[in-house]
Design a protein around this nucleic acid. Sequence first.
DNA 1: TTGTATGCGTTATCAG
DNA 2: CTGATAACGCATACAA
Lengths: 329, 329
Amino acid sequence: MVSIKDVAKEAGVAISTVSKVLNNYPNVSEETKKKVYEVVDRLNFVPNAVAATLSSKKAGRVALLISLNNKTQAIDEIHMQYISGAIQKAQELQYDVITVFTSMIENMSLEEMTRYFAAQSISGIIIFGLTTKNKVIHKLIESGTFKIVVVDAPMVNETTSSVGVDHTKAQYDVAKKTVVENKCKSILYIAGRDDGYVTKWRIDGIKKLCEEKKLKLMIKYGDFSELKARNITMKYAKNKSAVVCASDLMAIGAMKALTEMDIFRPVCGFDGIILMGYVGKQMNTVKQDFANVSSNAMEELGRLFNGESGRNVVLPHTLVRMKYEDIIC
Amino acid sequence: MVSIKDVAKEAGVAISTVSKVLNNYPNVSEETKKKVYEVVDRLNFVPNAVAATLSSKKAGRVALLISLNNKTQAIDEIHMQYISGAIQKAQELQYDVITVFTSMIENMSLEEMTRYFAAQSISGIIIFGLTTKNKVIHKLIESGTFKIVVVDAPMVNETTSSVGVDHTKAQYDVAKKTVVENKCKSILYIAGRDDGYVTKWRIDGIKKLCEEKKLKLMIKYGDFSELKARNITMKYAKNKSAVVCASDLMAIGAMKALTEMDIFRPVCGFDGIILMGYVGKQMNTVKQDFANVSSNAMEELGRLFNGESGRNVVLPHTLVRMKYEDIIC
DNA sequence: TTGTATGCGTTATCAG
DNA sequence: CTGATAACGCATACAA
């Protein structure tokens, strides 16, 4: 294994000089730079990331904290996009990434959780799928021990940023399009889980629309469950003129129910997952670019690492109709 | 941050003693053990994994190498299962895990790739989705530099194990069931990509069945593409009595084509992905437990770390019919 | 501009 | 059975 020592010897300079060249320190002559780079190239040297993080005080290791609480694997697509987007950007920024599932740390106290991350020299964490119920993680965020970026949750402080689309506006937009297209008068809204931040935001969106358009609105909680959405639809959709759902999966459940009931009601979803293309009928949905979201989250973490303070980052969304022809390949 | 030094001081022993206690070295008195553990507990000490891997010579960091070449996100489910299964088991075995996508290393030479992993102190690699075309990775395997477990590819040597279901038998089983149920006489087989190892194995399976049952067999390569499977079906399915596909996605494409052609032919798939439940009609498919596969791969890597030599590990598969009622929740 | 020396938190090899 | 002490590979304050 060729180390920085070998490079130094071969180039006829000191270890520290090589280190300086590699880390772009200002006071190094062009000549030695060239010399060092030549040897680095020739010996095919890559600095040992483990040694670097041990030695350096500066941030560079980040943990992806992912909740796999939902049993349904149909949304694995979303997590996978999150992971690959984050890892891609991390490589660009030269950060190391470890992936952690909440199931691995769910019973820890704040102390234990802090140690757990500290033991891995983690300096930043990106949290996906945080609910209001997870108290320990909230404490972790408040503690300020780590730089944290939360996706789709309104946590912002000196060491914490939040990243995500504007769920209120997105829900408003997609519902409006559906309602206008079909001249609807009353809406059955199937919300997510009451412990989810996005749930509240999206409800705000649908409420705003209904006030503006003077539509009657009934809100039921479907817990992001396809089955519950199905049952709710069976029970309440008949005398409504549209079913607006807070997720694609619930929209699929609602649509299947309507088909069975043999009545037509426009349905719209939220997320833009590929699965939507397979269920036969088209519908409007909000398309989030999940890889882009987590890529942005990683960049935002970079800002925090550089000493800047937390903020709220809003990412764009688009409205789409997904049909089979679009997704087949 | 409490370190081993703090523990040593607090317990009134030497650093090395603490280390020995923590790593279960033989020659330590029960008394000092108890003393050390008490302090470890009280100070909530967790050894720094980064420092440990830098210092220790022993294997403990593994890379998950994942191909995301297919555009279709419908199979993200599979990758996600692979990842979570591997990480779960790794935590159990006290290994560190990093996730690497082939896109990040695809243009590297053997040298560069070796450095890349070495730079991260990687000692073991689990490879998913290897094709015959990736020459550099084959060289990496032959080099013996790392302990490697390959999923679904027949690479076995002193430092390499392979893990996966018996694809030949699985293809034979699922096709047989379909053929028998429907009393078929001739088969259109839509294979995967010709550079995939599983493709060859599965073809062996269908050939064996056709010989046994004296069925006429036509084989076409669908490249695991839903669209190609669709086109192949359109072109050749009419005068066959069943369509056997080497993947669920292709089976879905075939089924959609048959529906459009307004003819019925039994179709069977391979993989058992959730998506199958959404496409309306049921069909037979092979269910692989992907999380279990990668969990086993991680365990196998552990064996290699312990100095044992490579081998071929065959995991069980099951036959299922997936319908909507089974997957909704 | 370059080199020297020290430390990061462990593990491992000795000597005691 | 226990304790110094030298690595591990790199970063960095400080000296030259």
